[in-house]
Write a protein that binds this DNA or RNA. Structure first.
Lengths: 129, 129
DNA sequence: TCGTTTCGGCTACAGACGTAATCGAAGAAT
DNA sequence: ATTCTTCGATTACGTCTGTAGCCGAAACGA
C-alpha cells in the first residue's frame, strides 16, 4: 500500500477532519474549545478530542503553542489544500482523473440545484478569459 | 459512529473498490480471473483477492453463483450508484452539499482540462432544456 | 480407490481508526 | 505546605482494513 509522508501525505481520517474543520474556522484554540464545537454534534467526550488532536499533531498537520499551562492548536495546512487533495483523489479514483464525468454524475443524481448550475456557468464564463 | 445497513449502506473500502471495478468491467467471473486483473497492479496474491471478495459478499454488494466446483462473482450494485454515492458524500462533507464550490475548487487546482470545460459546457447547455 | 490439485472458508495479524479511561505534573486554592 | 483541579501524555481496546496463510472438501488423474 502506498505510504506517503509529510504535510498532506499522512491521510486525515473522517473524525480527524471534523476537528480540522473547527480549527480552520477559528484558531489557535484549546482542546476544550474544540470540544465545545464538536462534542455536541458528534457525541464525543473531551478525551476523544484530545486523542484526535494529538494524532493530528503527530501527522504534522496541526501545530501547538503553549498558552500558560495549556496548549493552543492551529492548523498547519490550508483547508483549500486539503479539500483540493481530497477532490482530486476522488476524481482520480472514480472518474479516471477527468472532472467532466463527475459533473455528469452529479447532474444525473440530481445533486445539482438551479443555483449550482448558475454559479458554475458564471465560473465557466469567467475562466474563458 | 453511524452504522448503516443494506446495499451501499455498508461502506466499500478502497481495496474492495478495486475489486468492484474489475467486476463492473466484466462479470460474472471467478476469483482467479479477478486476480488476473488486479494482482499485477496492486501487487496482491490470490488469498487477498479472495478475502476481499468474501467481504464484499458479506456486505451484500457482490453475489455468487456456483459454476461447477467454483464460484463466479458479479456485482449487486451498479457502478453509477456507488460512484454517485461517493460523489455526494464528498460534496456533503467538504462543500456543504453544494456542487458549485467543488467545481470552483477543481478549477482552482487546475484539475480541469480544456476538454473538461468544453464537455461541461455541453452538459450545461443540454440541461438547460 | 488413492494421491494431487483446486477452490472456497476460516484464521491470523499488524496498523489505522473511533472512542475513552487513567496517570502524572503543574497550578490554584486554602 | 497540602490538597484539589487541570491539562497533556500514555495506555486501552474493539473494529475495520490490508494482506495473507492454512485446512478441508471436491474433482481429477492414475
Amino acid at each position: 500500500m502506498a505510504k506517503r509522508k509529510n504535510a498532506l501525505g499522512e491521510r486525515i481520517s473522517e473524525a480527524e477532519h471534523a476537528v480540522m474543520e473547527v480549527l480552520w474556522d477559528k484558531n489557535p484554540i484549546s482542546a476544550a474549545e474544540v470540544c465545545d464545537q464538536v462534542c455536541a454534534q458528534r457525541d464525543w467526550s473531551i478525551p476523544t478530542v484530545k486523542t484526535l488532536l494529538s494524532r493530528l499533531v503527530q501527522k504534522e498537520v496541526v501545530g501547538t503553542e503553549p498558552d500558560g499551562r495549556k496548549f493552543l492548536y492551529r492548523p498547519l495546512i490550508a483547508r483549500s489544500d486539503y479539500v483540493g487533495g481530497e477532490s482530486r483523489r476522488l476524481v482520480d479514483r472514480l472518474f479516471g482523473g477527468r472532472a467532466a464525468p463527475l459533473f455528469a454524475q452529479l447532474a444525473e443524481s440530481e445533486a445539482l440545484t438551479e443555483d449550482d448550475l448558475a454559479e458554475i456557468e458564471a465560473l465557466l464564463r469567467e475562466m474563458r478569459k
